[in-house]
Design a protein around this nucleic acid. Sequence first.
DNA 1: CAAAAACGGTACCGATCAGTACCGTCTGCG
DNA 2: CGCAGACGGTACTGATCGGTACCGTTTTTG
Lengths: 185, 185
Amino acid sequence: MPVKARDRLLATAEELFYAEGIRAVGIERILAESGVGRASLYRHFPSKDDLVVAVLEARDRRWRSWLAERVEALGGHPLAVFDALAERFAHNDFRGCAFINTMIESADPDSPAHRVAAAHKERVVDYLEQLLTAAEVTEPALQARQFALLMDGAIVTALRERTPTPAARARRLAETLLTADDPAP
Amino acid sequence: MPVKARDRLLATAEELFYAEGIRAVGIERILAESGVGRASLYRHFPSKDDLVVAVLEARDRRWRSWLAERVEALGGHPLAVFDALAERFAHNDFRGCAFINTMIESADPDSPAHRVAAAHKERVVDYLEQLLTAAEVTEPALQARQFALLMDGAIVTALRERTPTPAARARRLAETLLTADDPAP
DNA sequence: CAAAAACGGTACCGATCAGTACCGTCTGCG
DNA sequence: CGCAGACGGTACTGATCGGTACCGTTTTTG
């Protein structure tokens, strides 16, 4: 057990929160499955909410760097984000977007968890805008939001249908978007 | 108090579940805000899960008949579904799609609530296919799933951005979809 | 009109929730 | 080597969870 208690807590909490939901997972479960003592948890995180925020912030960083890495590896084209999504949808432990799930579960928009989740999505939109600007697309800011809408639609649909195909379908939609708006009026 | 206890329970539970989430709302809250006695609740619904299912089934019927009515009133064109969505997004008590929220909150795909929510989405896809078939679109079955993806994407985005604009943006995406695939190879 | 069903209110159940306090032990570092 | 901080384990708190049992009253209905 070379890993520190704090890291084990974050890893266990992230796994359980993603798989079953934040509200559905009690402190007891996290303590049992991580092997961390009760006092140690509250020494690192004053409350469950603080643990939730820490988990989401870590996941935000990891998820976005993963996306950038995959897009890079697939050629750097904006459409590659949908190929990256398809990879994630294929995992059988896929359970949608942790940040969408958090915004839905933590209904209050002013709650810390909700804010962190919303901030993540904005950062993703910013990244998409960078990609689209680099690809010399017209109106990259607007197109980035269209891409984000397609990504979230694909994620929710994949969660519902339990297949990776929505990624390919969203990609086709994004293609028609780019080709249709290329010759601007 | 002309309304029966059962109806008041369904109405109160639906409102609270939608606004704050199923898990976040306890039986106590529903009893207090509906003015129904404890025994009466368990006489009509053996458990909270049964109440949840009954609420979702009622909402499914009402939501789909509302959509059909709005689309009819807006001319019957498939794209009208996005105009209907825009109306819903404008309400300040909009909190996304109750069925998406339920599938996320009730993570287990085999749970009764999750199944009812998934069944609702399938019925919406069926309705979209009818609309697209009537509009003589090529491959209506596939296009219906594309429309559903765009609807869910718009709903999640509207929840995130807290504006009705994602409906218009999803509609534009659907338009390019229809015009691009009209002249099939 | 009277029997029956539906009703609202209250007390209670065991289980679980997040969080606190204190314990003895282990470990890394000066 | 010694000690300070990090650690795991246990016992406990008050609050709340879903659910049961029983109360007397109101409303419906045959």
